[in-house]
Simulated scan of single mutants.
Amino acid sequence: MQTVYEVAGAADGLLRLAHAWHARVMADEVVSHAFIRGVRADHSQRLAAYWAEALGGPKTYSDSYGDETSVVRIHSGNGPHEEMDRRAIACFDQALVDVGLARDDRLHQVLHDYFAWTTTTTMSRYHGSADDVPDGLCIPRWSWNGLVGESSPDET
Rank of each mutant, 00 (worst) to 15 (best):
S32M: 11
S32T: 08
G66L: 10
R40F: 15
V148I: 10
F115E: 04
V110G: 04
I36R: 14
A102V: 09
D42S: 15
N145G: 13
T156E: 10
H112N: 03
M26Y: 11
T121H: 07
H43K: 14
V71R: 05
L15D: 02
P153W: 07
A27E: 14
Q94F: 04
A95F: 05
A54R: 10
Q2G: 02
S129C: 15
A11P: 09
A49W: 05
Y65E: 10
R46E: 01
V31W: 02
Q109W: 10
M26I: 14
M26D: 15
T3S: 14
Q94G: 05
A102F: 11
R141P: 01
L14M: 03
R106I: 07
L107W: 06
F115V: 06
P58L: 06
D131F: 07
S151C: 08
D131Q: 12
A54G: 08
Y65I: 15
G128V: 12
M123W: 08
A102Q: 09
D154P: 02
R141E: 08
M1P: 10
A48N: 04
V99N: 06
F35H: 06
H43R: 15
D12L: 01
W142G: 05
Y5E: 03
E83G: 08
D42F: 14
V7E: 03
R40W: 14
G66K: 03
G38H: 15
H81P: 02
M123T: 03
A88V: 00
R46S: 10
T156G: 10
A130P: 09
A20Q: 03
E150H: 13
G77K: 09
D42R: 14
V110S: 01
H75I: 11
H33E: 09
E29K: 13
L147G: 02
R87T: 04
C138D: 06
S76M: 02
A116T: 07
P153H: 00
H112S: 05
V72D: 05
D67M: 05
S124A: 15
V99E: 07
T3I: 07
L137R: 08
S32D: 01
D113W: 06
T3P: 01
T3W: 10
P58Y: 05
S129P: 04
G66D: 05
W117V: 03
W117R: 07
T60P: 11
H112G: 12
L96G: 02
S76C: 13
I74F: 12
H127R: 14
V4I: 08
A18T: 05
A20Y: 02
G100E: 12
T60M: 11
V25L: 08
E82A: 11
P58G: 11
A52I: 07
E6P: 02
A90G: 06
I89L: 12
